[in-house]
Design a protein around this nucleic acid. Sequence first.
DNA 1: TTGAAAGCGCTACCAA
DNA 2: TTGGTAGCGCTTTCAA
Lengths: 346, 346
Amino acid sequence: MAQIPNKSAQQTAQYAVPTSADVARLAGVSRATVSYVLNNTSAVRISEPTRRRVHEAAKELGYVPHAAARSLRAGHTRVVLMPTPQIPAGPLFSEFFNELQWALSRFDYTVVQYGSLGLTGEEAARAWAELRPVAVLAPGASGLGARAVDVLKRSGAKAVFTLGPQRTEGAHALLMDQRRIGNRAAEHLLERGSRHIGVVIPEEQGLEPFARPRAEGLRQTVTGHGRGATVTELPLAYDEESAARLAARWRTLGVDGVFTYNDEYAMLLMRALQDEGIAVPGETAMIGADDLVLGRLLRPRLSTVRIELPSGQKLAELVDRVVRDPGMEPGVHDVLGATAVHRESS
Amino acid sequence: MAQIPNKSAQQTAQYAVPTSADVARLAGVSRATVSYVLNNTSAVRISEPTRRRVHEAAKELGYVPHAAARSLRAGHTRVVLMPTPQIPAGPLFSEFFNELQWALSRFDYTVVQYGSLGLTGEEAARAWAELRPVAVLAPGASGLGARAVDVLKRSGAKAVFTLGPQRTEGAHALLMDQRRIGNRAAEHLLERGSRHIGVVIPEEQGLEPFARPRAEGLRQTVTGHGRGATVTELPLAYDEESAARLAARWRTLGVDGVFTYNDEYAMLLMRALQDEGIAVPGETAMIGADDLVLGRLLRPRLSTVRIELPSGQKLAELVDRVVRDPGMEPGVHDVLGATAVHRESS
DNA sequence: TTGAAAGCGCTACCAA
DNA sequence: TTGGTAGCGCTTTCAA
């Protein structure tokens, strides 16, 4: 069953994709009319019988318009490109993404998540630019530089946003300053009397872009506090053995308060400390981050830093505004809120 | 600063997107030559100086080819479309997705996740078909029917896969039979002596496509077992109050074993039972699913059903094979493995 | 070794 | 109310 690409020669019925010309032929009208009918063009009035014939023909053939052809003709797309972050995002982040995606689709944008695996900077930007997105929302870890932003703009992108820890020349920034989480954690521990503060550094590679700034924020605050407060970095892999090893040498560390990067690492460490007979918060106060349900289920209940991300609706509005007025000065929008929540572990 | 769309009139330098014609002009060659050079067309030999001039011109203009134009001309794309599941997928699933995405990109496919929010069945299929993907991997919950599959195929999709609980006429199926998880859980509980088995049904809407089949599988096995074994459905929302309410009436339920849908619900329920003074596994045996790290951190350590998904590599190979030979009979590939892991809670 | 030109599917302008 | 047709950006055949 050879496939004959030459369409005029022989319709290999099964796989010949119908075009608007086919619809026109079947309906006995011109391609223009087909376009008018199927797009409900208001500038042109088409008689009811004609409309019906066109619709029937389209349905019979299983006609679906060709997005590429359409956008080629239109000279622009409604695609908002969200390169998938390489980082395994937690539930908080995924929810934020979903909401944003939903909100954007309310504005009639087509949200496309594009896995540009391995590429970074300008190379990635070029790959994205091939799709001619009207807007790009790039996760912080994509390593977009000013030149990469330029590539995107020159390819017609009206709005380029970075969402992450720092801003990039020429792009709007949804600044998510993870250091703030460390700040809140440190303040909380200091207020409650800790002076020698440990900070868990996950050994999992992918988490570094989150972990480093959280730790850095903690250090900032502790250092700024003076009075001889200290910081100790505690590398920890997300498994029991690693946690047990850390717990075994815990008392030699002289740490009286610990920020565990997030609630899951907190649970891991709390269990290990308890198995070692170390009292939380008696000997060591503990605070996590993300305010997951599991924190409330621990005993003692886990203190945490709650993170607030902006509503997808607001962000979608912002994106839309920039798309409509690309001349806007790139703005910096500080969107990550963090609050310490006291429970029983600190 | 008005924008002048008329390109020939005046290059509004900042936003006029360069085309291959612009590159040709700047390099002093024809568009054909540009195409040859930039695509490294082996059938044609271009002199080194010309190549250089073309590359320089392209770089200077920041030229990026237009994917839509290219695929329009080519008559096909290398896009593999993965509609984003509405369901908040757990870490297991996201990892599986990422791996698959990566593997596909090794085959030179462009993986696009497309948020077709709210659409289902034929409607969704039409939206997807507009992108003319060469393959579609649709999550089970998209509600693809035979007609929707047909829409995709008629739009040129060479391979249509469903990944989910059931197969669809005309599509290849990556069958992920969640019932199997319930089967294993039930077998495990029965073997260890439970006769009155509870099954947690998460009240969270989005989880239903996973939760129902898991519960159903459990019921199958328990019913098949005979000997007066019973099943009790236990609706539970993912919060402490709901769990406390369930725990409060626990003893009236007469349940001596429970399958908690997954490890997170297990943790929630275990805590609530313990707060109520109900011994696990003494009074009630418990088994979760997903084999998350947190299960090992609970006391008693949580028994669980470990889920195995196939490697992204294998799946990518399969997709590629079908794309290259679209005539293949749609196959059913049973890809979800489940094994009970005994720890201390059962 | 290079260029001219056709044509992928679509929409919108202009004419009938 | 409808049709003819140019042209979006690209690749590829054919000719020079």
